[in-house]
Design a protein around this nucleic acid. Sequence first.
DNA 1: CAACTACTTGCAAAACTTTTGCGTTTGCAT
DNA 2: ATGCAAACGCAAAAGTTTTGCAAGTAGTTG
Lengths: 142, 142
Amino acid sequence: MSMNMPDFRVTLHTIGSRITPARMSLLKVLWGASMPLTVSEIQNKLQGVSDTVTLYRSLELFVKSGIVRKVDLQHGHAHYELVVGKKHHHHLVCQGCGTVEDITTCVPTSLEKGVLKKSKSFRSIISHSMEFFGMCRRCQTV
Amino acid sequence: MSMNMPDFRVTLHTIGSRITPARMSLLKVLWGASMPLTVSEIQNKLQGVSDTVTLYRSLELFVKSGIVRKVDLQHGHAHYELVVGKKHHHHLVCQGCGTVEDITTCVPTSLEKGVLKKSKSFRSIISHSMEFFGMCRRCQTV
DNA sequence: CAACTACTTGCAAAACTTTTGCGTTTGCAT
DNA sequence: ATGCAAACGCAAAAGTTTTGCAAGTAGTTG
C-alpha cells in the first residue's frame, strides 16, 4: 500500500515512451488513486492538463505495455488502475454504493496451472482477473 | 454442457416477467450460444425480432434477476451469457483471436470466505468473476 | 370472453464513451 | 542547433447505452 512513488520517468522510458507532461500527470493521478478510476474521473483530476483523446491514447498504450490495468467493476464503463509500484491485487466491490476495496488474496498458482492443463486449446496464460461483488456494512440494509 | 433446454416460460414467470416473443427468443439465442455474446451479435441472431432498446431493457432485467450474467472479456464491449440451465463456470480468453473457452474450475469456497473474513468493511459476498487471459495454440505464434 | 391495467415494445432522440484523421507541436537523438 | 518520429489537440465520426412517450399486448378479473 504505502510504497514510495516510482520514478515515472524511468517507467515511461522502460516502455519506450517519451516523457511528456500529459503522461507524467496521468501516472501521478493513477498513483494517487485509492481505487480504479474511470476516464472522466481521471479527466477531472487532470484539470485540463490533457485532451480526452490524448488520455485515451495514453491509457491504451499503458495497458498494452502492462503498466496500467483495465478493470471491470460492473459499473458500466472502464476503470483503470496503476500496476507499476503497486502490489498485485484484486477487488471487492459493493453492489450498493460502488465502493471498492483492494484485496491481496490472489488466484492460487496451482489453480491457474490446473486451468491451463485442463484446457484443450490454450498454450499459455498471461493474466487473470478476479473480482468479488457483495454488500458493504453500510449498504447491507436488512 | 449438454443439459436440456429449460422451459423458459417457467424461467420468465419465476422472475416475474411476462412471457413475450422478444424475451423468449432472446433466451433461446443465449441458450444456443457457445460463448458470451455482445448486444450486436444477439441482434444479428434475433433477426429483427426485437428492437435494440427492448433488447437492452430485457438484458438489464435478466441481469438484475440473475438469470443472465454480464461478462467482461476485455473486448471493449459487454458480453452476456445465460446462467439458468448452465453450469457455473468461468472463461479462458485468447488475447490473439478472442476465442473463449469455458472452464469449470471455480474460485475455492475457502478462498471466498477468507476474502470476506479479511475485509474490514464488507458483510457479504454475492458473486464473483474470474477470467483468464492467454494465447491459444493457433495464436501462439512463436 | 370482453374489459381493464400494468408491463412491454418500438421509434425518435439524446447522452455517453471511444475511435479516427490530420495538421501542429515537441521530446530527444545526432 | 537540427531533424524526425512520437505525441498532442481539435474536430468530427462511430459506437454503445439510456430516456421519454405513445401504442401494443399479456394476463387477470368479472
